[in-house]
Amino acid sequence: MDPFVVLVLCLSCLLLLSIWRQSSGRGKLPPGPTPLPVIGNILQIDIKDVSKSLTNLSKIYGPVFTLYFGLERMVVLHGYEVVKEALIDLGEEFSGRGHFPLAERANRGFGIVFSNGKRWKEIRRFSLMTLRNFGMGKRSIEDRVQEEARCLVEELRKTKASPCDPTFILGCAPCNVICSIIFQKRFDYKDQQFLNLMEKLNENIRIVSTPWIQICNNFPTIIDYFPGTHNKLLKNLAFMESDILEKVKEHQESMDINNPRDFIDCFLIKMEKEKQNQQSEFTIENLVITAADLLGAGTETTSTTLRYALLLLLKHPEVTAKVQEEIERVIGRNRSPCMQDRGHMPYTDAVVHEVQRYIDLIPTSLPHAVTCDVKFRNYLIPKGTTILTSLTSVLHDNKEFPNPEMFDPRHFLDEGGNFKKSNYFMPFSAGKRICVGEGLARMELFLFLTFILQNFNLKSLIDPKDLDTTPVVNGFASVPPFYQLCFIPV
């Protein structure tokens, strides 16, 4: 058959498939802009700032609406009420993970971030239990974070109060905490193996944040037939998995079943207990991918939040002064901060919360999916439909947070200066898919920041009023603009 005829037939089939998918069930789905064949609503979305586009569309179609990214149908949730109703009140029905062709290629359905069903539930339950087990290797997770915080302070001392970009050092600290939990080992910041790991993690975040990856996920045929950065992403992930597998083999040879040292040991012990169960989800494949998931999810998000926190503290020296006064009063100079201190430091706690609220790190979270046909607000959402959640619409709700575009710790303080919780605080998402490392991340943010401010004054290279804190939105995360500062020993 003539190649031209084959091409026309293929394009015609794709067009018909697109029209059929977009028209099927439209009477039951939430409203939304009319999609174009094949490309859907992509032309109506700013790929570099999806969150802003969703906010604009919500003003037209309401808090629940339908979009098509290519052939992929998505239902968008915008605003606290619908997000709570879906992710919390109907948590089980909305607990699936959205379709990610690239991740599915890399992870093969294993791990904790992109798995679904029984596998996801069992691996998540085990990971939560293990991360909360403060007795691994007779050292609590808090001990590990405190140790890394001391190392971080010593690295900052080496800058000798000269101007520096904190990106690298602030990236090393949370990565080392995860390494300590998974591998029972922290690395020197100049260790070549550690630097290679950091390089792969950072490069992957840069790649994932590009519009090209959005295109690959919406048109998965590209993955096999086109060159691009997605190939580098898959190569980096394969490198990390190979490295983790080597460490798993080392653990198998040296493990003491009665004295687990780290996450890998705990997983291997669980595998041993379930070795007679042919349906067990505790396999080497799941261990390797879960460890890679924890490394990827637990490094860049925390380091970016820390980097943004220091920029905001530079911009608002009056806030920094209040935090340091609270540190001096509650902790002093002669001991290290600990998590028990947080309950006695409402202002510092409010500042950490406000940093996370203000920066809105992951504006749309990772997409969910419905696990069955769901009736939601008089609409029928078919099983498997991807759910896109606007966390921006919750964290920047102007009824809950007056002047949401302003950095103001009073958003989390009552009139008496006591810490005030808010149900709208969802930087880790909400419901059954809430970030498994939430507790660890909150511990790291509090301890790293208090250790830094206990030991250093922060000095800006320019007038604080002239510092730009506008986030650089890159399609996946909101990151701070480049800046330098000086760490002046107190």
Rank of each mutant, 00 (worst) to 15 (best):
G228A: 05
H411V: 01
I331A: 04
G98L: 05
D265M: 02
I381Q: 03
R357Y: 00
Y347K: 00
E199L: 12
L67R: 00
S280K: 08
N204D: 07
L306G: 00
G416I: 12
P227H: 08
S478R: 13
H316T: 06
E199C: 14
I182S: 03
L361V: 10
V145R: 00
N204L: 06
L14V: 11
E328H: 12
E199P: 02
Q214M: 07
K383R: 11
S365G: 08
D408V: 03
N378Y: 04
P337Q: 01
L440H: 02
G384L: 01
A149S: 06
N258H: 14
G111T: 03
Y225P: 05
T320H: 09
R157H: 13
E241D: 07
Q484N: 11
Q340S: 13
Q324R: 12
K235Q: 14
A369L: 11
I19E: 06
N41P: 01
P481N: 09
N455D: 07
V355M: 09
F126M: 07
F456T: 03
N378D: 15
L311S: 04
G437F: 04
P33A: 01
L14R: 01
T283P: 00
D293E: 11
K52N: 15
L306P: 01
A369G: 07
Y308R: 04
F476T: 10
K28G: 12
R186I: 01
I222D: 03
D49A: 13
V153R: 03
V8R: 08
E272S: 08
H78G: 03
P471K: 15
F187K: 06
R186C: 04
L36Q: 06
L234G: 05
F282P: 01
A321K: 13
E154V: 09
K247I: 10
S18N: 11
G91Y: 05
T130I: 09
L7P: 06
D89Y: 10
I381G: 00
R97L: 04
S478Q: 15
F226V: 13
E415I: 09
L54P: 01
K160E: 14
D341T: 02
N204M: 07
V153F: 02
G416L: 15
G431D: 02
T66D: 00
T371N: 12
P363D: 02
L311Y: 05
